[in-house]
C-alpha cells in the first residue's frame, strides 16, 4: 500500500469516526444522555444497508436511507426508558442493548452470516471509477457527508432545540418546570443521533465491503467516548478533532509497532491502556476537552 492510498484510507476512517463522534456528542455533550451503546447504531446501520444491498439488490441510495431510518428508529426505542431511569441505569442498559445486537448478528447466521459476516458488499457508483481512483471518490463522499452532518447538526444545536437540550443536561427538573417536554427532546436527540450513527455504519460497510460482528465490539463505543472527551464535549468541532486525534494516535502506534519488538497483541493492549488513561486524565483534570464549549451569554438588555 502506498503512502497516498494509506492516507486516503486513514482520512475515510477519520470521517466515519467523526460522524459517529458527532452523533454521540449530540447525545452526551448536548442532551447529557450517557450512551454506552453507541456502537449499536454503527452496527445496525452497517448491517441494514449491507444486507439490503446484498440480498435484495435495492439501489444503494435507498439502502443508505433505510439504514438511517432503522438506526433512527432504534434511537427512538432506546430513548423510551430515559423517562424513568437514572442516567447510570440507562448507561448500563445501553451497554447491554448493544451487546444483545452483536449477539444477534453473531448467532442468526441465516440472516447475517453469523461469525463469517456479510461479504462482497457493493460499493456506490463503483462502475464510474477505476480501481485507483475509487478510494478518492469515496473520500469525497465521506467528506461530503461529514460537512453536511456538521452543518445540519450546528443548525439544530444553535436553534432553540439545542438550547433546550443543554438545559436538560444542566438541570432537567428546571427544564421540566419551564414547561419543556424533556422526554420528547431526548427522543429527538436520540433519533437524530441514531440516524447519523446509522449513516456512518452504512458508509463503513460499503467502504470495507466486508463486515462481521468483530467490527462491533463495545470497545468501539469507548473509542468514541475517548474522542469526544479529548476533543471536547458540547461542540461539533471538538468531536471531529477528537476523532482525528484518536485515529492519528491509533495509526501512529501501529507504525511504531513495526519498529518496536513488542508483538501486535501487546501493542494493541498498550494502545488501549493509553486510551483508558486519556479518558481518566481528561475527565479528571480537563473535563471540557481540548476545544471548550462556547458559552453563550445572553445580554438581558437585548431581550425584550
Amino acid at each position: 500500500m502506498t503512502i497516498v492510498n494509506f492516507l486516503i484510507y486513514f482520512l475515510i476512517m477519520v470521517g466515519i469516526y467523526a460522524l459517529l463522534a458527532m452523533s454521540l456528542n449530540l447525545q452526551v455533550g448536548y442532551a447529557g444522555l450517557i450512551n454506552f451503546g453507541q456502537v449499536v447504531f454503527f452496527c445496525i446501520g452497517a448491517y441494514t444497508s449491507s444486507l439490503l444491498a446484498t440480498k435484495t439488490g435495492l439501489p444503494l441510495l435507498f439502502c443508505f436511507l433505510l439504514a438511517m431510518i432503522v438506526s433512527g428508529f432504534f434511537g427512538y426505542v432506546m430513548s423510551i426508558p430515559t423517562k424513568s431511569l437514572k442516567s447510570d441505569y440507562w448507561a448500563i442498559a445501553t451497554l447491554a442493548a448493544a451487546e444483545v445486537f452483536r449477539l444477534v448478528a453473531l448467532n442468526e447466521g441465516w440472516l447475517t452470516g453469523g461469525p463469517f459476516g456479510v461479504m462482497s458488499i457493493p460499493q456506490p457508483l463503483r462502475f464510474l471509477f477505476s480501481m485507483e481512483n475509487y478510494p478518492l471518490f469515496y473520500l469525497f463522499l465521506v467528506t461530503l457527508c461529514v460537512i453536511i452532518v456538521f452543518f445540519a447538526l450546528a443548525l439544530i444545536t444553535d436553534s432553540p432545540f439545542g438550547r433546550d437540550l443543554k438545559a436538560i443536561r444542566e438541570e432537567e427538573d428546571l427544564c421540566l418546570s419551564l414547561g419543556k417536554n424533556t422526554r420528547k427532546l431526548k427522543l429527538e436527540a436520540m433519533v437524530v443521533g441514531g440516524m447519523v450513527g446509522g449513516l456512518a455504519g452504512a458508509l463503513f460497510a460499503h467502504y470495507v465491503t466486508f463486515i462481521s460482528p468483530e467490527n462491533f465490539w463495545p470497545i468501539e463505543t469507548f473509542l468514541l467516548w475517548a474522542m469526544i472527551i479529548v476533543g471536547g464535549r458540547g461542540n461539533h468541532a471538538g468531536a471531529i478533532l477528537g476523532a482525528a486525534l484518536i485515529q492519528i494516535f491509533n495509526v501512529s502506534t501501529r507504525f511504531i509497532g513495526e519498529y518496536v519488538s513488542l508483538g501486535s497483541d501487546s501493542m494493541a493492549s498498550l494502545r488501549m491502556v493509553i486510551i483508558g488513561f486519556l479518558i481518566i486524565i481528561f475527565v479528571s483534570y480537563r473535563p471540557e476537552g481540548i476545544i471548550k464549549e462556547k458559552k453563550k451569554v445572553y445580554d438581558p438588555r437585548n431581550i425584550r
Partner: peptide, 28 residues
C-alpha cells in the same frame, strides 16, 4: 464535588486501562 456521572465515566476509563494492563502482563 463533580457529578457521580463523571465518576462512572472515569471508572470506564479504569476498566479499559486495567483490562489491557492485564492483557499486557499476562497476555490474552
Amino acid at each position: 464535588g463533580v457529578q457521580p456521572v463523571s465518576l462512572m465515566i472515569v471508572s470506564m476509563g479504569v476498566e479499559i486501562a486495567l483490562r489491557n494492563i492485564l492483557r499486557l502482563i499476562w497476555s490474552s
